[in-house]
Design a protein around this nucleic acid. Structure first.
Lengths: 259, 259
DNA sequence: TCGGTGCGTTCGAAATAATCGAATCCATGT
DNA sequence: ACATGGATTCGATTATTTCGAACGCACCGA
């Protein structure tokens, strides 16, 4: 471990790995567990944890001594969230679409080879699909995932497509790279993505791109619900609302369509 | 810098200081700024940043090379937020109080010598007070701050009271430790805290303690708004709703009042 | 009451990895 | 083409991390 593309402080890389480990578990872990999981001596892991405990990035339970992600990370997360213009520009329109369609509206962006929800507007219907802030879904079988992939620069897209696992969640999941490539091209053509029970049976969704001032897609605006069929009027209506809102938000953010 | 109470990895402590610096600014910073602010050579800071950039804890702008907190911190923040039982148990009752009173309802907890908002329910009225998740307010001049202080174990409370700055925000701010101590005792007696324009002129708030199963206060439930007077009927009504809800939430979380 | 067990924590010397001034690169703008 | 201001890389010195082992402590069953 003496050679590295990037010249960086290895202790800090390790500390980040500890955070990742705690994040994957989503719950408290003992020093022993962390040490075993990471393959480093307990004393080493302890040193890293102690450093991060100092300012609340990790916390230690007074009862059982287990470690977990700390409140300071919540604080940082709020700062990051507040820095996203796209959330501020979308909030109102998202609520509006949620009311009009009765379904869940969400804003997603790429994070670690998956699509992460960064904002939601709750459904009003009784069969509401819940979509929690911070939750992640696969890229190859959701409308937001496929959309974000479709608009990724070709170079990065190729790399991500290679890394994906193409797990089949339902019989409708697109589980081979060739077909996904074709779907992505179609998405770029029509300017939006749909998903027809490819991730969860009975769930359908549509997503449209929000462009930043630099012309790249900074988020996917989507609607998800238990629509009857993709061709149904309600779904097409929801899809259109999302597409129009995404265009308007892009405009608000300073993006101008190339002529 | 060879002696330390805690035995911890100093590079990681420094990395955390970099994060803190970026968090305080709440916006992008250049390597030079960070270096100057922290008083360390640019190359050193760069190494720390490079390590954290690897996994998205910090991001670097492609345009101007400036650094900022990364999306991974948002992801971590959501995990932390989701781990708080108190939020899940409070959500519904908070919405209810917000509807009943038309004012902003919030859940707060201690973070770095201030009271941080961890959940909110938006006001319905036209003169709504906004309270953003993650925002922090002083301890000595808000109902949530005084409440959290009042129920802190005596040892910790003394330490915090010493560190506070007692800045006067309005003519009503309690700006001396003695009077604050007396106020805290009164709060413990009556079981709730109020604030009468001590932080912002015209703003009044009331907070009640939510107890965890271990008997400590894990959060303050509060309501804030432009109430006419503390003795007004609306304020007393809101205060009572908050107190009752806080008791119920405490019960739901497994707390049983000592006989 | 007494060991045993499984924790987190501390210790200390060997050895690795961080440090930081200076050099380099790479945009921008003149 | 040149200067400027920034990020980044380099490399020898040196302080820091490392990690096995020992410690302290709570819990639990005998």
């Amino acid at each position: 471990m003496t050679e590295r593309g990037e010249r960086c402080v290895q202790s800090v890389v390790k500390a980040m790995a500890v955070l990742d480990c705690l994040a994957r578990r989503q719950g408290p872990m003992s020093l022993g567990e962390l040490s075993a999981e990471l393959g480093w001596p307990k004393a080493s892991v302890h040193g890293l944890l102690a450093a991060m405990r100092q300012n609340g990035v990790v916390e230690q339970s007074a009862a059982d001594g287990k470690y977990r992600l700390g409140i300071r990370l919540f604080s940082y997360g709020c700062i990051v969230s507040a820095s996203w213009d796209v959330v501020r520009h979308s909030r109102e329109k998202m609520d509006h679409i949620a009311l009009q369609t009765g379904n869940t509206v969400f804003l997603s962006t790429l994070e670690e080879d998956s699509a992460m929800v960064i904002e939601t507007a709750a459904a009003t219907g009784s069969f509401r699909v819940v979509s929690e802030k911070g939750s992640r879904v696969p890229l190859h079988c959701t409308s937001q995932g496929k959309l974000l992939l479709a608009y990724l620069p070709a170079g990065q897209r190729r790399l991500v497509l290679q890394r994906l696992n193409y797990q089949s969640y339902t019989p409708h999941t697109i589980d081979d790279p060739q077909r996904l490539e074709a779907e992505l091209a179609a998405i770029r053509d029509q300017g939006y993505a749909t998903e027809d029970g490819e991730y969860r049976i009975g769930l359908r969704s549509a997503s449209a791109p929000i462009f930043g001032v630099d012309g790249t897609v900074c988020a996917a605006l989507g609607v998800v619900g238990m629509f009857r069929r993709v061709r149904s009027e309600e779904f097409q209506y929801a899809r259109e609302l999302v597409c129009r809102a995404a265009e308007e938000i892009s405009f608000d953010m300073g993006y101008r369509e190339p002529k």
